[in-house]
Design a binder for these strands. Sequence first.
DNA 1: TATTGTTATACTCTATAACTATA
DNA 2: TATAGTTATAGAGTATAACAATA
Lengths: 178, 178
Amino acid sequence: MKKCMREGTADQRVAYYWGRVREQGQKKKDFDWPSTEVILNLAYTYDVLMLHWSKLLSRYRLSLSTMNILTILKYSQGEGHEQQELCQLLLVSRANITKLIDSLVKRGLVVRTASLLDRRVWIVKLTSAGDELFADFNPFLLKEAKRITSRLTGKEKKLLNGLFLKLRAGAAREGSLK
Amino acid sequence: MKKCMREGTADQRVAYYWGRVREQGQKKKDFDWPSTEVILNLAYTYDVLMLHWSKLLSRYRLSLSTMNILTILKYSQGEGHEQQELCQLLLVSRANITKLIDSLVKRGLVVRTASLLDRRVWIVKLTSAGDELFADFNPFLLKEAKRITSRLTGKEKKLLNGLFLKLRAGAAREGSLK
DNA sequence: TATTGTTATACTCTATAACTATA
DNA sequence: TATAGTTATAGAGTATAACAATA
């Protein structure tokens, strides 16, 4: 991976490619550069940040998904969550959440406990080992979040968060191509 | 997947969880909610948009990565690219770009041609079949980019693009945790 | 009948390291 | 020695459908 990235030049390279997209798009129907740029930027920024993030998490043998599960469970304050709720929060299918939870159970980080209200349901909870692991990685992530966003002012962060919301609203809107 | 998402409520659910993150984070050292929110928003917005995007691409039996490769090659206007350049543009390792290109070669969408300058190098180019497929999917993606960003004004799109750049600059900065 | 979760399967993507051949 | 690309391998993630138990 490292070998493929010459330090400090990735953004320039991408800019060069994007320039071509922009030029050659002009001729096309429905082309709107700022719109396209937003999508390219979202995907590329995600890749850059999450590549970095994944590397941090690999120290704890966690992926983004498993880290998210532990975090969600931690913030439930001992109540836990149904697997189905985790599906909704993580945008992961039922079949795949089963596998993710399986892997965490195997490592002793979470447990499945039966629901008293609905016998079809498992409530997933953090174990003390899971809690410890969370206490271990979470401070790093908070620090990193602060560092990564350090070039933005408070006002810009708020602005950015509002724009993200609008983007998602656009994606969810009716009339999408089926 | 669909079964796990009750229409129109995903954002509220996530907001509920984020509320807990925010509350319980307050006590912690290095916690800064707007910074954390930016990261959560980036990841979640990416997931929402790309889930949708992937569904569109699956009609063409393409993933985000393979779509990107075809697009990059298309915009090289017949010149093609070294695999190594694709690594840099896509943030994918050399080993893995080999596999991705293999799969496209197998489908007849791209070809590897020897470089005349360096005998270690393959130049990857779009075939006419690849070109046709691009002509097929690209208009949909342009339309979708426009639709997804339709809730943003032109000014907001520009703003957003600038903020993405700052985010990436922050991630790349020296002094990151090693 | 609908929902929660599991199982099975196949595919894609990623990470790592050892390897070949060129430069 | 360094670089471009390949091979091998193992693990993670995703998509789909069929299934059991329960509501």
